[in-house]
């Protein structure tokens, strides 16, 4: 379980997060939604110890993120940041293979190879596996990065807007993959999403943030109501239920 207690964060004098507390139990898909600048990415990067904690406590499976050796955390938790740029000339399979680094410190066992192959196949990268990353399109590169995070094979997977650059086909495929690892392998996925309908269709729980605070937390059915969405995003939208799931028609 990820436990976030009384976390606040400032960039210079500007408060980014104010006194956030949140428990995310093991298993399932949790979506973080909210307008730009709500602090979603910052919260995710604090959980992933990419930035030092300023106030509060965060632990993952009882391991405090600020004092646990980075290497141990890397076996428990994988993070994919948005707009990760790769300047290195690496081949797709090499990049995905580095997801195994926390486990073998560079030596790939047969088991590692199998996991890498599975991640490559899962994201339709088999034909591209010998291509250099720089020769890929934005969507293909994003899939390679997601595959790398998958290959890390951790209990917790944090993804910051992973649907960027993906077309509808691969966006849906990625969300279904996340759903299936959560259901079949008991993994915990925390994902920042802009598309609330993706959150509704695939997440178990939605946490809405605004101005550095959590302002709503519940099932898709509880969050996707016209009133609640107005509070979060600042305008009313129609909500229709299809196959038992609420969808917001925010384009209207």
């Amino acid at each position: 379980m990820i436990r976030i207690e009384n976390v606040s964060f400032k960039h210079r004098a500007t408060p980014i997060l104010s006194d956030i507390s949140l428990d995310i139990p093991k298993g399932g898909v949790v979506a973080l939604i909210g307008p730009n600048g709500a602090g979603k990415s910052t919260l995710l990067s604090l959980v992933a110890r990419l930035q030092p904690l300023q106030a509060g406590v965060i632990s993952v499976d009882g391991l405090p993120v600020d004092t646990t050796p980075s290497r141990d955390l890397a076996k428990v938790l994988a993070i994919l940041r948005q707009d990760t740029t790769i300047a290195s000339r690496l081949r797709v399979r090499e990049l995905v293979g580095f997801g195994r680094f926390p486990h073998g410190r560079g030596r790939l066992t047969q088991e590692d190879d199998a996991i890498v192959d599975a991640a490559v196949a899962q994201f339709d990268l088999t034909d591209l596996s010998d291509r250099f990353i720089e020769t890929l399109s934005g969507g293909q590169r994003q899939r390679a990065l997601v595959a790398m995070a998958f290959a890390q094979d951790t209990d917790y997977l944090l993804l910051d807007e992973p649907l960027n650059n993906l077309d509808m086909y691969y966006a849906r495929a990625l969300m279904r993959s996340l759903r299936s690892v959560a259901d079949a392998n008991g993994k915990t996925v925390v994902i920042v999403l802009h598309d609330i309908n993706q959150a509704s269709a695939h997440a178990d729980r939605i946490v809405a943030m605004k101005s550095g605070r959590i302002i709503a937390d519940g099932t898709p059915g509880e969050i996707l109501t016209p009133d609640m969405l107005d509070t979060v995003f600042g305008f009313r939208m129609r909500v229709e239920t299809i196959e038992g799931k609420p969808f917001a028609l925010h384009q209207l």
Binding site: A48, R49, R81, I86, S88, E94, F98, F101, R105
Partner: peptide
């Protein structure tokens, strides 16, 4: 440290994410 160097080239965040000091 060759593998760690390759990962370093991916940037600070990717390195920390993979458990590199």
């Amino acid at each position: 440290v060759a593998d760690r160097l390759t990962i370093m080239a991916l940037g600070r965040e990717a390195s920390i994410g993979l458990g590199i000091d």
